[in-house]
């Protein structure tokens, strides 16, 4: 494996790229464990994963700020649009666009606070976080505001913890030098896929049944 990675690096593939690809199964396993064992729902697996990577790229502080700002802007825009009868897709288009435009405001704030990391951050990372808005609005329509906020918070928690894992250099090195550990992760994911027990959150949800016993 070392030879293969050396070859990639010699040919200008950034170490970051190799790391992210190698860490991907670990992050996926982490999100699966969070769902099956703890009961953190979030928005599926793709959204928390991609947001974790975006967060790591932009930097935790600014990533979280963008996350919160875009949800706030989207909520306000949706609130303002509630009286106007328009179809679903155009409505999402408006909300997403206005949220994207609000990033100009955030950039100006970033310039004033001299945060070069944010100002120079790749716009794609920012856009990735903004696309969360669609999931958020969708959840709002289907399951109500409360659930949407809870799901977003769960996504934020997962992405924050994921960011913590992603930025652990030791773990990165471990996978880089021993890529076979990914097989252990796969075994873990298969085990979780067959796990039938109650989730931790369900112990809380069903506590009355348990205490009634």
């Amino acid at each position: 494996m070392d030879i293969f990675f050396d070859y990639l690096i010699r040919n200008d593939v950034p170490r970051e790229t190799i790391d992210i690809l190698l860490m991907f199964p670990i992050m996926a396993g982490f999100i699966v464990a969070a769902r099956q064992i703890i009961g953190i729902k979030s928005f599926g697996i793709y959204t928390p994963l991609i947001i974790t990577f975006a967060l790591t790229e932009i930097g935790f502080k600014y990533g979280v700020s963008i996350f919160i700002v875009s949800l706030l802007v989207a909520s306000i825009v949706r609130f303002l649009l509630r009286k106007i009868r328009i179809l679903y897709l155009p409505k999402i288009a408006l909300i997403l666009s206005i949220t994207a435009l609000s990033m100009f405001f955030s950039l100006v704030l970033g310039i004033f606070s001299d945060s070069t990391m944010f100002v120079q951050a790749s716009i794609y990372q920012i856009l990735i976080i903004i696309t969360l808005v669609e999931k958020f609005i969708n959840a709002q329509m289907e399951k109500g505001y409360r659930t949407a906020v809870i799901l977003s918070l769960e996504t934020l928690i997962l992405a924050s913890l994921g960011n913590l894992i992603m930025t652990t250099t030791r773990l990165r090195d471990l996978v880089f030098y021993n890529p076979w550990v990914i097989l252990i992760v796969f075994a873990g994911i298969i085990f979780l896929g067959r796990y039938e027990g109650l989730r931790l959150s369900e112990y809380i949800r069903f506590r009355k049944i348990i205490s009634n016993q």
Binding site: Q36, Y195, L198, R199, E202, F206, I209, S211
Partner: peptide, 22 residues
């Protein structure tokens, strides 16, 4: 009820995982 009894009893409750899988 100690934690072991809670665990044993909890096996009778249907959770999301068991509902979907079994």
């Amino acid at each position: 009820m100690n934690w072991l009894e809670v665990f044993v009893f909890s096996q009778k409750i249907l959770g999301m995982n068991a509902r979907n899988l079994s």
